[in-house]
Design a protein around this nucleic acid. Sequence first.
DNA 1: TAATCGTGGGT
DNA 2: TACCCAAGATT
Length: 293
Amino acid sequence: MDTPAHLITAPILDWYAANARDLPWRTADATPWGVLVSEIMLQQTPVKRVLPVWHEWLRRWPTPAALAAEPSGEAVRAWGRLGYPRRALRLHAAAQAIVERHGGEVPDVHAELLALPGIGAYTAAAVASFAYRQRHAVLDTNVRRVLARMRTGVEYPPKAQTRAEVALAEALLPVDPPTAARWSVAVMELGALVCTARSPRCVDCPVLDRCAWQAAGRPAYDGPPRVGQTYAGTDRQCRGRLLAVLRDAPAPVEKGALDIVWADPVQRERALDGLIADGLVDPLDDGRYALPV
DNA sequence: TAATCGTGGGT
DNA sequence: TACCCAAGATT
């Protein structure tokens, strides 16, 4: 029989109160827009690398309207080296949609958040919870790992999210919305700081004596091999090189400036075509290339 | 559904 | 050193 929910949630809420990091998007004066920007930037990207870029974005574009008024290429440029630059493009598009559809205010309705570009199930739930103190199951990679260990007794969750995981998350979600919102950020923080993917700090865990994985003797992951991401020599690396040229250039560049950063012409052209198709690069009539307007 | 999409730091 | 993987979304 599972440990009752409150015997799990209460210690983790207490742990969070004592151990939460001071992050700028969690302060009392953080705006929903600041929360939304942080959530997009944090997708697949560590907090440490997000912090300086987030500060610069919020200083420069304190509202969705401010960003929406800029060329999308400026968002791509200010994205810097956070990676997955389509996120910058989608965040710019989301800002425009927020201005057009929601009067410039980040919506507080889950379905309306979900309808914005670049916002999926996780991010919609996260913004509704963290910016508006609502009650939603917030399932990110941290929470999925914590629940897999604590409740299912396995080291890692399945590759693709299952309905069973959603049911698990909803079963633990406190009834009171503000408490549920605090729980969501608390269990995520536990996954980020203690119940980490590798070398978990179980000695610091507030629910170690209620952990199914611990009770089972912390068995090693037993399942299909988890796919590693190769990078060197891939189209992704090539796209990154090409886009870096445009980010670092103050003006449109000649084709030659792109050619010199990647030797294989076939792969280079394919990658450039992909960037253009994605709207990350704008081919000008004079043969030069620029970030999009 | 599975592949694709950047980058840098921890172990 | 080579991996591993980090607050996912989209097609």
